[in-house]
Write a protein that binds this DNA or RNA. Structure first.
Lengths: 108, 108
DNA sequence: CAATTGTGCAACCAAATAATTGCATTATAT
DNA sequence: ATATAATGCAATTATTTGGTTGCACAATTG
């Protein structure tokens, strides 16, 4: 539970993805979240720790409860990466188009 | 190297993300890919195996070489999940809006 | 003040991961 | 036919992961 700590690592685990979805609807406490899963409260707490470390989530203390909120901003990193990917893909098709155009020009 | 085999697991590893980006530009062989990394060819081959298993990539044999292509379709699963997430987030704001509207109506 | 509640943290453990090295196999080239 | 190149597969290993239990500690309740 130490090293690689980024958004992609954060969403790799299905339980963490479920936590993210729940928190997207409303901020919740570890106990509140744990009710939705089979694993123990401490297990959920560990996931929250990981999510906090990569800033996907941030804790807000209210009395003895801690509400965890989604950090939307961090989630956009995934989107950025996907955009980059799609850009590279589209360029590939552009190059293919160029090849096809040249072939067509030769035929003319 | 057995169990969880989905797109999110696929993009969790930074080397695999790099491989995906390279293949987004053009199909490549394991040897060709390995030149871009410090790790051994076999290590890259294992990543390709994982990427193949979750259908992010597919192999095309040409003589003794194997060209790996990106399977764009599978990448959209990530996008779908992100869309779902953003939908939940927007609904949260809608609910907040509703609350604010009701408060405003009371003041009227 | 004592009991309870909500939480984090440490120690521990089984399983999975990423990487290595050493082969076996197939296709090409000489 | 033999050498070489491109690749996959198996065994091994260190590290990381995800989970558990048991505890400590602060806030709340009675």
């Amino acid at each position: 539970m130490e090293s690689r700590r980024d958004v992609f690592q954060a969403i790799a685990d299905p339980t963490r993805r479920a936590i993210i979805m729940l928190l997207a609807v409303s901020a919740m406490t570890p106990n509140g979240l744990a009710e939705h899963f089979n694993s123990s409260r401490q297990a959920v707490s560990k996931h929250l720790q990981i999510l906090t470390e990569c800033e996907v989530v941030s804790p807000e203390s209210r009395g003895r409860e801690i509400f965890y909120h989604i950090n939307t901003q961090k989630m956009t990193e995934i989107e950025k990466w996907l955009e980059q990917f799609k850009l590279l893909m589209s360029r590939k098709f552009d190059q293919l188009d160029n090849v096809l155009n040249k072939l067509q020009n030769r035929k003319q």
